[in-house]
Nucleic acid binder design. Structure first.
Lengths: 259, 259
DNA sequence: GTACGCTGTATTACAATACAATACAAGATG
DNA sequence: CATCTTGTATTGTATTGTAATACAGCGTAC
């Protein structure tokens, strides 16, 4: 990580752009609307800076402004960026037909995730039962240690990498049942390594059973995961392992990106 | 529209940020990777400017860089922005459960679109049959006059607005069957107004029949549309009108945003 | 083999641009 | 009605981004 001091002296780093991106990034699941004063608090910018950058993003069409409250919100331009990304994402392109098939076969919610740092991010989501919408939107990041997708991706890495991740990567308590015991997480990952898939229950959403299988490139490096999310009212882990896991594993194995 | 001259004198407009966003926006369905020289061509920036802005976005994690080819591509951060937007989009939150139901009822591809200027943009996509992935990704923009969703949104506007749109808004020939005759487009819109839904065939993708219905706010303003996409090998417009249209209309009417 | 064109990278001195500090207006709050 | 907090607008100043340039690596052509 490069510190702010090093960056200030780096003539190839345009700090004005960073400040603008700070504003763009301020919006999150907690806060979807900001007045100017709020932006100052969240971004740490000066009042006049926040004013200029927010105004610029507004003129460029990235932010909308409620004329009454004068608060800013992300515009639909945020979505256009997702489109640009998806076109460039070789894995998503490759996986999509298989995900559609899997969705039809199982009639359950199917997701595809990719690793990013210590998190995973959902790239494709195909909901099949009503659930919290926000939780099932594209682009969501979840700590890899918590999500079944993250764990199953880890399970294909070296012992050393797994141990490092389990002991140092962040976790977060999403539900009452979210496992905060790192030993238990390690066990779950090692189990996933043996079985070829990872099962979890209630880690991110309270009433869900999850089954995840890794997508590996031709040289065996895990580059993503497919995961199936089942309502725990009707599914036990055991039944999921029997009926769903083989399908998820098969779909994941049929996707072999060359890079 | 504010011209560049006016902007240069506007002290509230940070042109450095605009240049950075130009780089971010350079990536599209046609071009998913850019070297520095390509960026210069596409964005119109000076070489050194392109260098600094691309480098900044790289350090901030928005762009990835292929170490061999030294070309830039959008990173998964593009997707995170979609997440921020979807959390803030009241209509998407509201519609999601109904879209899931509709997807299960019909077993067909269901989309939700919102108007943006003279285009519509796909906000929710639930594919149910194999298709060109890129064409079915979130965030895609299509001219409103071409897409069934766009036409059905227009059909709920005033005569004057419809006539203005049909005569001045842009169209684009996506397939051989895409209607470029504006008179025919007007007829289709007026038909949609009568029926309450809009049907089209092969406008955006060659082998597709589409049925779209408008989502209107409590005061009758069209704010979006649901559309169902059917493979034309197995569906005629007539059969779609009989079996699918009532379901789509019902779903759309059950969504009544208060703002 | 070397000369050339094309990349991407790195370093300058300079001035244009973003800056902080203001002052003002308009609601909200007490 | 007084006061606080919000968003808006202006200005002189220097910080910051700038264009120009030089360099290195690579492939192509002669």
């Amino acid at each position: 990580m490069v510190g702010p001091k090093a960056r200030q002296q780096d003539t190839l780093f345009v700090s004005s752009l960073e400040k603008g991106m700070r504003i763009l990034e301020a919006f999150s699941e907690d806060k979807t609307e900001f007045g100017l004063a709020d932006l100052v608090k969240v971004t740490g910018l000066e009042k006049s800076a926040a004013q200029r950058y927010a105004n610029t993003l507004y003129e460029l069409g990235y932010l909308e402004k409620n004329p009454e409250t004068r608060r800013f919100r992300p515009s639909v331009k945020y979505l256009e960026m997702a489109y640009s990304y998806l076109w460039a994402d070789y894995l998503a392109q490759l996986a999509m037909p298989r995900l559609i098939d899997l969705s039809r076969q199982t009639s359950q919610t199917i997701n595809m995730a990719e690793p990013i740092g210590t998190d995973i991010i959902y790239v494709v989501r195909m909901p099949n039962h009503r659930t919290n919408f926000g939780a099932s939107a594209i682009g969501r990041r979840v700590p890899a240690l918590v999500a079944s997708s993250g764990r199953v991706i880890l399970s294909r890495q070296s012992d050393q990498a797994i141990r490092d991740a389990v002991s140092t990567w962040p976790t977060r308590q999403y539900t009452q049942r979210t496992t905060m015991d790192r030993g238990a997480i390690l066990d779950n990952i090692l189990m996933a390594r043996e079985k070829g898939y990872c099962t979890t229950q209630g880690q991110v959403l309270p009433d869900e059973v999850n089954v995840a299988a890794p997508i590996c490139s031709i040289d065996g490096i895990p580059v993503g995961a497919i995961h199936c999310s089942l309502p725990s009212i009707r599914w036990t882990i055991e039944r999921a392992e029997e009926e769903i896991a083989p399908l998820v594993v098969e779909a994941a194995q049929s996707i072999v990106p060359s890079r």
